[in-house]
Each structure stands twice: as structure tokens, then as C-alpha cells.
């Protein structure tokens, strides 16, 4: 199991949710996981129903069996100032830079610079050791930018090479890349069983591989329950006489076969036909995903929305599907 787990995917597919569930799953049984967020959106705090996270590692959840999940919202501005302080003892000049908008500048005009800071902070946490020489965290899980930007985001080296050819930023980028391109890192993609997210996932896999970034798992999120199986769909839609269904509905007390019960048949079959179409589409998208030889996982759609309890359910589901820290 890689120590840096990066979670990407199309917007809205559940990156933040899956990253958090993954952190819980990996922290289970006495491990310690750090969940980091890089887009300044406080998604983790919302999910765990806590107040906004400061730029500081703090414990936000206990995993089953005594593990701990810490969280950190990396703020690029603060990371830059941190970095300046650490390497240059800039002190008040650092504050002046901020006041002038230099930090804003460095982090907006050159997204590559910002990304070096963000990934750099995450990699630092991956490598950090305590006094006894043990890793501070068993693993670091990153709620990363969406698929469309993930390769550029992680490939800071290429991005920065054009900007800083020598100097400390350049060196930092190199150090980051050594971690990111190693087996220590694994990039997972979250998707839904719909055409656009699957297409993005496929494109993402191709891009990541081309950039020699290690692709890990594909996690299909919000999978709807299979309410009718193949045999039922076939039998129901094509072979069963409508009168038999009408009678069965009547027998179940839903009104006479020629009356109220009978009138249900058409709409119920129409719903089944829609279901069948979606079922076929989902099957086709599953097949597309399966072509890439990556481990596939599926997480259910939690019908009543997602709360903290639901998050633990998803974590348990991941563990059942073999995602664990061993």
C-alpha cells in the first residue's frame, strides 16, 4: 500500500467523500492517517461537520479499532510564507510580500509554483519521521484537484521547469517529483457510471500514465442498487404477459387486475424499461473501465444523503473490498 494516496476524479463525483472514507479505512486498527485538502474549500471540515480547518494538522476522527485520522487544509499562501520562513528566515519581508500581493501573484500567475508548494507540503508529511525514526503518518491521503487538472498538478516538475530552471523552487520540484513518481504514491480516480465521468477517467488514466505517474484504483461512487437482476429484466420486459402481472398486483392487494391494479402495469413496466436502459448503459461503462487493468471498487449511493455515519459505511465498504493498510 502506497504511503501517499491521491484521490482525483471528475468534479462532483465524490473525491472529497472518497478521500475521507479512504482515510478512515486506512487508519482502521491503530494506524494514523493524514487527510489533506489542497483547494482551499474546506470540504473536509464540512464532511466531518467541524469548524473550518486551520493550516495545522489536527485530529478529526477516530477510525474503527482505535486508528486516528488527522486533517490538514493546505493553504498555498501560508505554505509559501512557511516555506520562505523555513529556508530564508524572511520575517517581515515575508509579510511585506504578502501585503503587496506578491504571494497572490506567485500563486496565481504561475499555478505551477503554487502546486509545488501544495504537493511539497504533502510530500513533507509523507516523509516526516518522529524522534524514534518512525513515520509520523502511516499514510497521507490527498483530496486532489479534478481529473482535468491532476496530471499538471502532480507533474510540477515539468510545469516548473519552464519557469524556474535553477534555484530553490527548482530543487523543491525535483524532490517532490521523486516521491510522486515512486511506488510510494498511488493516484486513484473516482467516477460515476455515466458517460462523461468515465470518459474523463479514461483520459485521466492515459495522461497520468504518459507522465509516468502511478495510477492506483478506480473507485466507482454512488452506485445505485440493482433492484431487478438480468433474469428479471428479461422475463419482465419481454415475456411475461401483462395480464399475469396485473393479476399478481391484484393478488398483492393493489386493486383489481382490470381496475386500479391493472392500471399500474404500464407505468411500472415503463419504469422497468428505463431501469433496463440505464442498467445496460451502466454495464457498458463498467466494461470500459474494466479495460484498463486497474482494481475497480464500487461504493453504493447512500439514498438519504451522506452524513458522518454514511462515511464510516463507505470506509467499511472499502475495507471489505480489500482496501487496507497492511
Amino acid at each position: 500500500m502506497s504511503r501517499l494516496q491521491v484521490v482525483s476524479g471528475k468534479g462532483g463525483t465524490g473525491k472529497t467523500t472518497v478521500a475521507a472514507a479512504l482515510a478512515l479505512a486506512l487508519a482502521t486498527e491503530g494506524k494514523r492517517a493524514l487527510l489533506v485538502e489542497v483547494e482551499g474549500r474546506q470540504g473536509i471540515a464540512q464532511l466531518f461537520e467541524t469548524e473550518a480547518l486551520p493550516y495545522e494538522e489536527r485530529k478529526i476522527a477516530v477510525a474503527p479499532g482505535g486508528g486516528e485520522v488527522y486533517a490538514l487544509a493546505i493553504d498555498p499562501e501560508l505554505a509559501l510564507l512557511d516555506y520562505l520562513q523555513m529556508f530564508y528566515k524572511l520575517g517581515s519581508a515575508g509579510r511585506a510580500l504578502k501585503k503587496l500581493g506578491a504571494v497572490d501573484f506567485a500563486t496565481t500567475i504561475a499555478p505551477g509554483l503554487r502546486d509545488v508548494l501544495l504537493t511539497g507540503k504533502a510530500c513533507e508529511a509523507v516523509r516526516r519521521k518522529d524522534k524514534r525514526g518512525r513515520f509520523a503518518y502511516d499514510c497521507v491521503i490527498m483530496d486532489a484537484p479534478p481529473t482535468g487538472r491532476i496530471t499538471r498538478f502532480l507533474n510540477v516538475n515539468d510545469e516548473v521547469a519552464g519557469l524556474a530552471k535553477i534555484g530553490p523552487i527548482h530543487n523543491q520540484a525535483q524532490a517532490v517529483m521523486r516521491v510522486l513518481k515512486s511506488p510510494e504514491t498511488s493516484v486513484h480516480l473516482v467516477t460515476l457510471l455515466e458517460e462523461m465521468p468515465v470518459q474523463e477517467t479514461v483520459d485521466g488514466i492515459t495522461e497520468l500514465r504518459a507522465a509516468q505517474l502511478p495510477v492506483g484504483r478506480v473507485i466507482v461512487n454512488m452506485v445505485r442498487p440493482a433492484l431487478l437482476d438480468e433474469a428479471e429484466l428479461e422475463l419482465g420486459l419481454e415475456r411475461t404477459p401483462r395480464t399475469a402481472i396485473a393479476k399478481t398486483l391484484a393478488a398483492a392487494g393493489l386493486g383489481g387486475a382490470r381496475g386500479a391494479g391493472g392500471r399500474l402495469v404500464d407505468p411500472l413496466l415503463a419504469q422497468a424499461a428505463e431501469y433496463a436502459e440505464r442498467y445496460a448503459l451502466e454495464g457498458a461503462q463498467r466494461a470500459v473501465l474494466a479495460e484498463h487493468g486497474l482494481p475497480l471498487h464500487e461504493l453504493p449511493l447512500l439514498a438519504d444523503g451522506l452524513d458522518l455515519g454514511g462515511l464510516y459505511e463507505l470506509a467499511a465498504e472499502l475495507r471489505e473490498q480489500g482496501v487496507r493498510n497492511s
Binding site: P225, L227, L228, D229, A231, E232, E234, L235, G236, T240, A244, I245, T248, L249, A252, L268, L269, Q271, A272, Y275, A303
Partner: peptide
């Protein structure tokens, strides 16, 4: 081999319940 009419109809009804929710 397949589903009985009861099972099938029950499936249709469960599908409907899901839809109504």
C-alpha cells in the same frame, strides 16, 4: 431458471418504491 411472476412483480414494486422515494 428465471424469476417467477411474483418475484418479478415484487421487483417492479421495489423499483417503484425507490422511484417514489
Amino acid at each position: 431458471s428465471g424469476a417467477s411472476v411474483e418475484q418479478l412483480t415484487a421487483g417492479l414494486l421495489r423499483l417503484h418504491a425507490e422511484r417514489m422515494r
